[in-house]
Design a protein around this nucleic acid. Sequence first.
DNA 1: TCTGGGGTCCTAGGACCC
DNA 2: TCTGGGGTCCTAGGACCC
Length: 329
Amino acid sequence: MPVTRAKRLCPEAIFLRGDWRRYALASRKVFEILRHYSPLVEAVSIDEAYVDLSGLDRLYGPAIDVAERIQRELQERLRLTASAGLSTTKLVSKVASGYAKPGGIAGILPGYEARFLASLPVERLPGVGKEAHERLRLFNIKTIGSLAALDVRLMEMTFGNVGRLLHQRARGIDTSPILSAERPPKSIGREVTFEKDTIDRDYLEAILYGLTEKVARALRRTQMAARTVTLKLRYSDFKTLNRSATLAEPTVLDREIFFAARSLLERAFVRRSRVRLIGVSISNLQRDLWQLPLFGCERELRWRRLYEAIDRIRDRYGTTSLKVGRTAF
DNA sequence: TCTGGGGTCCTAGGACCC
DNA sequence: TCTGGGGTCCTAGGACCC
């Protein structure tokens, strides 16, 4: 009923998700096409985006036409299919696009947002994962509509602030704007699960160094510097722990990240049981001030130049073209 | 589902300072 | 010397998303 292809539709947000995840290059072209239609495109992930269509009807006609044109262009130029959800809010557009899968378009008329959501299973609501779904089941909440009908105070008591947010979402309320600016990352991490669990400390350190190299290289690409280093360790019984340390000064250097990660490993690796996964991530990212020639610490500068030279070689000849003694990759 | 890898956001407790 | 409140930062863990 609320899902319509009516020409009267005048939504402001369109949510697209496609099957171009595996094609990084195609992904860039997809976003180029989207930006051709609207200056306001928010990339959610490599294969999802919100497009702001408000005020574009004079140029391209009704939103539903724009969605169809975009789909056609993606198909003809890139051989990619995408499903689209159209509505007045990001939240409802996203849910609608799931409804339209694969390759369809679902538009929700303004004013019908809550009615559209009401009949859907509650786990379709963004933010309701396995845990929340399980707890809602205890209250006999099976649809988004029944969640919306709950007393918000009950949701707050059960889920805290998240409860209030979910209650709002269930009623189709979402005021979040479409953000076009590319957001800098909040954290960068790499991890591996071993084929065979290990207890070999040297091996763990060697893997850790390889992961650190990847993280640091990705960090330098963003022109950011990191202050917090987090080590993740998962034992064979799946018990997972994180240990983090915040550096006095932000860094972009492999060695500093590695030294921090290694001492965290010493703290974390105390159980003497086999390790299944090891990972390192950096957060607390800030602009890399070393980009400006403000500080004149020669030693730091030399290391930085060395790592940047290694980056250039690897960019050109591949990651494995150059190996540093420690790494196990 | 004997469980991969990359992220984001939130919470809660403790240290520390004023 | 003891007490209290508020704010910020750090750390650890968990839920959730694709």
